[in-house]
């Protein structure tokens, strides 16, 4: 085992930060959703790393559930994106502000 735990966690942090920046800055809703997927994957990486280093396979179950949640979220999120596109003729998140106040 050559690679220390901190490398994996470092990779997870980097991916999480990239995902967060994507969520915060990109206007296209589809890309925002993709960035969210990156963030979730980084979290999965943390789970799996600790599972390996602690020798506890239990975390894999949680990863499995996270993947399920991510899939569900994408399905619903894309459905909402389609509806918003029908309404606004665009999928830009900053234009979907009709429900404010």
């Amino acid at each position: 085992m050559g690679v220390p735990l901190s490398y994996y966690i470092g990779l997870a942090v980097v991916l999480f930060t990239i995902g967060a920046i994507g969520v915060a800055t990109r206007r296209n809703m589809l890309v925002v959703l993709m960035s969210l997927e990156i963030m979730m994957n980084s979290v999965n990486l943390v789970f799996i790393s600790f599972a390996r280093f602690r020798g506890d396979v239990g975390a894999h179950g949680i990863v499995f559930v996270v993947i399920a949640v991510a899939a569900a979220e994408v399905a619903v999120g894309l459905a909402i994106a389609i509806q918003i596109f029908k309404h606004n003729r665009s999928v830009n998140v900053d234009e979907a502000d009709k429900l404010k106040y």
Binding site: V23, A24, T25, V93, D94, A96, D97, K98, L99, K100, Y101
Partner: peptide, 8 residues
């Protein structure tokens, strides 16, 4: 003022 409707 804060709740301007922009998710980002």
């Amino acid at each position: 003022i804060v709740a301007n409707g922009d998710v980002q």
